[in-house]
């Protein structure tokens, strides 16, 4: 009989283990409204120690007494020391965070997760596709790409939302849209009278662009249904699943591969992800 293979050891680790569950205090230095239910927070660590991270990573954000949740980092480390996150009001914790003011305290631990392979895309065209608050996590890689603008070819940003009021980072999209060789296309389901963009789901924007699937990398983030249909369209346009990159959102408690909630196939969204290519998701049986 072949024996079970868990390795045996009565000394699991040398030295004292670091307590990964202990967060650090941050001060909210700036708050701005991105839409009716999304706010953008600029944070500063109270201990003054550095905090390094890569585009696509996330942090666990706490208010003690209310709870903790994973939140995408929307800033890019290379562009400054301030940590920026954006939070939509969806549950008890995010509701509580929305009541905080500048100068108030939050707790942060991390950064966790892998990151967008943005450097690997150098020399290629980049197609960003975002739906609703799916733009929040993509902003970190957008910033990174624009920071190294000359390393990339043409850039498209396709952005869909329910209504103009729910579009986030409108100012930044407008600014990027004015840059050379960058095209920003927006669409909403329910337009207002002043709306200048398209109407309909985000996939309708594909009619307005032409890209070469061989030399383009696509970054995709949004609600599950939008991901599903966008992915179908991209595959019709002969994009390889390896070149379609997304970041996943799952129920998550620890952020460090222990609590189990964010299992995607046999991978943990928190430590193996949250960034996956569609090729990887297919192999995990979780492409939707």
């Amino acid at each position: 009989m072949k024996r079970g293979k868990y390795k045996a050891s009565t000394k699991p680790q040398k030295g004292a283990a670091k307590n990964e569950y202990l967060p650090r205090a941050v001060e909210i230095t700036k708050i701005r409204d991105l839409s009716s239910d999304v706010k953008h927070y600029t944070l500063k660590f109270k201990d003054g120690k550095p905090f390094e991270y890569k585009p696509g990573q996330f942090v666990q954000v706490s208010i003690f007494g209310v709870g903790e949740a994973p939140i995408s980092i929307t800033s890019t480390h290379e562009r400054g020391d301030d940590l920026e996150i954006a939070i939509r009001r969806v549950g008890s914790l995010t509701n509580a965070i929305h009541t905080l003011k500048e100068g108030d305290e939050l707790f942060i631990r991390g950064p966790y997760g892998n990151s967008f392979p943005w450097e690997a895309g150098k020399g290629k065209d980049i197609l960003f596709i975002a739906g609703g608050i799916g733009l929040l996590p993509l902003r970190s890689v957008m910033n990174a790409v624009f920071h190294h603008r000359k390393d990339y070819g043409k850039i498209w940003i396709l952005y869909g939302a329910k209504s103009p009021q729910e579009c986030v980072y409108a100012d930044e999209l407008a600014r990027w849209g004015k840059l050379d060789n960058v095209e920003v296309l927006q669409t909403v389901d329910s337009p207002t009278a002043e709306w200048k963009g398209g109407v309909g789901v985000v996939t309708t924007l594909f009619e307005k662009i032409e890209f070469d699937p061989e030399k383009t990398i696509s970054y995709l983030c949004g609600p599950p249904i939008m991901i599903k249909f966008t992915n179908i369209t991209l595959e019709e346009k002969k994009m390889q699943p390896d070149n379609i990159i997304t970041t996943m959102e799952m129920h998550m408690k620890c952020g460090i591969g222990k609590c189990g909630h964010c299992l995607v196939g046999h991978k943990y969204c928190c430590t193996d992800g949250p960034v996956f290519t569609f090729a990887e998701l297919k192999a995990l049986g979780a492409e939707e």
């Binding site: 390795k7 699991p12 680790q13 670091k18 990964e20 222990k258 430590t271």
Partner: peptide
């Protein structure tokens, strides 16, 4: 032994488990 592998030997060892263990 399974829990040792899971909590103690992968990335981000679990502080509470490791100390109790």
């Amino acid at each position: 032994l399974y829990n040792d592998e899971f909590f103690a030997k992968r990335e981000f060892a679990d502080f509470y488990y490791v100390n109790a263990r």
